[in-house]
Every structure is written in C-alpha cells, then in structure tokens.
Amino acid sequence: MSAQLPELQRLTELARQADLPSAERLARVRARLNVPPPAAGGGGGGGSAPGSKALASKLVGQLGATKALWISAAALGAVSLALVGQPQLKVAPEAPVSIAPLENHPQPAGQAPEPPAATLPELQVPPDSRVTSAQAPPRVQPSHGTRRTATAPVRKPAPLANSFAEEVALLQVAIDAMHAGELAEAKSALGQHAQRFPTSQLAPERTRLLEQLQSTSR
C-alpha cells in the first residue's frame, strides 16, 4: 500500500495547484468583508497595521503569561509532592472487618445456590484404581536420519500488531523532544523511525518533522 504513497502525493500536489483562487475571487470576498486592499510594498500579507502589531504583542504576552502560569503550577505541584511524600494507604488496626451474610447477596437468575460444604458427598474411590507409582510416558527414540525441519516448518514471526503504536510513539518522542529543544534526541527518534519503518504511511510526517527540525536548528 505504501508504494502508492508517491503517486498520491503527486496527485495532491497537482490538485493544490488547481485549488488556488483567482485574484478576482479573492477581491470579491475582500470587498464583501470590507477589508482594504493590502498596502503597496507590504509584500503579500506582510502589510502590518499598528493595531495588528499591538494585538500580536498582546497575544505573545498572553502566551507568556499562560506559560508562566503553567510553569508555576508545575513547580507548586512538585513542591507539594515533595512535602507530602508518597501517598500511603492507612488501615486502622481496630477497624472491624465485617462480611455480609451470604444469603443477602442476590443470586443471578437461573443459577442455583451452592450447597454448604458440609453437605457435599464424599467421593468413594476403589483402592485398586488409585495410582500407586508414577509412570513416565514411553520415550520416542529419534531416528538418526530425520531432520527437524522436515517435521515442523519454521514459522516466520508475524508482524507486530502494535508496530503502528511503536511508530507513533517514535514520532511522539521526536515531537516532544523538539518542543523541549532537545534536537539531537528528536533527530535520533526520527532516524530510528526511518530505519524501522522506511516505507510507512507516516513517512511524509517524518519528512515534515525532519524539515521542521532542520529549520529549527539553523
């Protein structure tokens, strides 16, 4: 199935070209939204109004505040954990242990209640039928001419059912490492993914992460 991946990518690449809206369409929606045309020399989306700059700085500020809040919450959590220590289960020794009477438990429908142990009839075993000595089963002597492979074919190990989970886990490690700024670890995880799953359906994601990693490390 992964052999079709390049073909699929070629198709989506071509479709991406077809999907670009015409300038007229963009202008029509722009007019409807009452958006002024971009300033000359702004450079296609680079035209920055002072208000947007203020908003951007506000957003960055919010992000900073959120991050700070998270970090302080994590630190507080760590300190409280250290102070409290490992939570322990405590059982009071004087706590009485009570067992509810058996007849109070409802029996499932269609199931007869078990008779008490005392009423079980004792099994009568005739004395001559008892096993008196352990007998080993007769041993089969292997003939010298036979080969092991002739009797039982060697089974190929089945592909791991959780290989996809492993694959995703490797990508997740790479993403987490990138977020943490540990680029070497991210690169190693991606390399491992490339080695173990070279023709995976998630190969484009690996490539994208590698590109992201390279642009980050520059």
């Binding site: 479709a15 991406r16 999907d19 670009l20 809206p21 369409r25 963009l26 929606v29 722009r30 007019a31 409807r32 939204l33 009452n34 958006v35 002024p36 971009p38 702004g42 296609g44 989306g45 035209g47 920055s48 109004a49 002072p50 208000g51 947007s52 908003l55 951007a56």
Partner: peptide, 30 residues
C-alpha cells in the same frame, strides 16, 4: 444578495485575510 460588512474588520483579521484567505479557499473547497 450576499452580505457585506458595513464596518471594517479589526487590523489583525485584515492581516489574516491577506495571509490565509488563499489557503482557506483551498481547504474549504477540499
């Protein structure tokens, strides 16, 4: 028959239009 804004959008939205409108055309279509 379609609708139009009588007020100007906030500057950040205007900037977002310049940056992302072509992609939004494409993604909505797909």
């Amino acid at each position: 028959g379609t609708t139009a804004h009588t007020e100007a959008l906030p500057p950040a939205i205007q900037q977002a239009y310049d940056a992302h409108a072509p992609s939004l055309f494409r993604v909505l279509r797909r």
